[in-house]
Design a protein around this nucleic acid. Structure first.
Lengths: 266, 266
DNA sequence: GAGTGGTCTAGACCACCAC
DNA sequence: TGGTGGTCTAGACCACTCA
């Protein structure tokens, strides 16, 4: 009699050691089912970013399983960065507001070692119709409204004052980001993903990037302060929320004379 | 009385529920100690790549802990790709020979989607003295012997026949790769890391990469078949074996007109 | 001191594999 | 059929946090 939760009673085919009902084709362990249920609660907004979810004991009682089973489910969600465990305090919904997860998608590093201090300069933010390629990536119909943000990130701690390092071009589905304006963007202090999470309820969970070397065109050269044809790192990012739904298409052009993109391979 | 193993009896300060000896400054859970012991056995060559390690029950008996504790240690080593679990068969030492872990450090993808079929062309392989920068990265003394390998990877499935895609420059500590010659390299079929593992007992565990966009110089342009100054992706990789010991410094220059570097952010 | 997550145990049964 | 890893349980105690 596993997972006799009120919310979902049709998960089927549990591996409980006492109940029958085994042998069906789509077998999945109990803790996976719990994980799925927890994910739905996160997705549905039952617990908000930064808030604590019920304790392991409470969840175990709710789902009619042992604490260890809940534990394994929560463990996986924690390694996927959906939850954050804090000993003695509780388990919390991950948020881009925390220092640990701020800028966790930004892999730019200064050649001298540390994380570069970056200032933002907004170039533009306007609503428009999406092109065919971007529509496909974002799962939209060609011509659907999108918000396009263009901005430059400037390295502040350089010897030669402020030099532009990144030119970003960000595309967001208009339906999800209704009140997003240039004013709101420039007024906001802190990570952009924090704004998305707090104002529009859109949390970025994971992302895929395609990286290339390209030659700067005229516009890019001007905005980044490099020569026409100078080599730039092109980082094309597709970000996903809950349920692997794509919600952001971003292209960053990086100057890499004094910075680099850092990656770890495991 | 945990971890009363014959090999190491001085691990100290266990969290066993029955024994005393707690409260010392450097506390580490039992499963971490087990993990450390297993890592040493791997490092010392007690079990070879591809071979099975003792079963969980055997290990539990050896270390005088419960199976669950061994399990947690093995779990972590499996997620770190040092071990591979196979249900019903056993737990095995990870090897670059397996399909799952072949080319797991190569992030190059074809723009059309799949993993590109690549042919190798060896340019050179010679022994020389290491420069200051590379020495620092590899933890060597300036002037120590190193093996330098240069090669080109060519995309085979292209419309325009074979076009060069990657120019690799690989630096290996001479002390570890004594019999490595151009003949051996060209004779070898399969991943290079498989050769390193099988012939020299050097297994790459993880790596760090710094990625930049650079302009092709004259030599690079010729070997990759691009114009002088063309933008290339520079991928500088430092690879590590057991104990986080650096054992390879590699620089790859990628043509990215029809390929890209793929990355996942979590 | 009460409550949280973190570790450890002992024992049961299930899924998978090889002989 | 027996051995392996995989799941699940129930209960104990430890480490941390906060009132």
């Amino acid at each position: 009699m596993p997972v006799a939760s009120a919310s979902v009673s049709s998960v089927s085919s549990a591996a409980s050691p006492d109940s029958g009902q085994e042998g069906s084709p789509a077998f999945s362990p109990l803790y996976q089912q719990i994980k799925e249920l927890l994910t739905r609660s996160l997705q549905g907004g039952e617990w908000q970013p930064g808030q604590a979810i019920p304790s392991e004991m409470e969840l175990a009682a709710r789902f009619r399983v042992s604490q260890g089973t809940v534990r394994k489910a929560v463990d996986e969600l924690a390694t996927e960065n959906l939850l954050v465990r804090r000993q003695g305090k509780g388990t919390f919904v991950a948020s881009h507001a925390e220092a640990r997860t701020q800028y966790r998608f930004l892999r730019l590093m200064s050649d001298t070692g540390g994380v570069p201090g970056l200032q933002r300069r907004l170039i533009g933010c306007r609503r428009q119709r999406v092109g065919a390629d971007a529509a496909r990536a974002l799962g939209l119909r060609s011509g659907d409204p999108v918000v396009e943000i263009r901005r430059v990130l400037l390295s502040s701690g350089e010897a030669s004052g402020e030099t532009p390092v990144v030119l970003d071009e960000i595309l967001l589905p208009g339906s999800l980001f209704k009140g997003l304006t240039a004013e709101k963007l420039s007024a906001w202090k802190g990570p952009m993903y924090r704004l998305f999470e707090a104002e529009f309820g859109v949390r970025m969970i994971r992302a895929e990037e395609k990286i290339r070397a390209v030659a700067a065109d005229e516009l890019q050269a001007r905005e980044l302060g490099v020569a026409l044809g100078a080599p730039l790192l092109s980082v094309e990012r597709l970000s996903f929320t809950y349920g692997d739904k794509p919600v952001e298409l971003r292209r960053g052009l990086y100057r890499t004379e004094h910075h680099h993109y850092r990656n770890e391979l495991n």
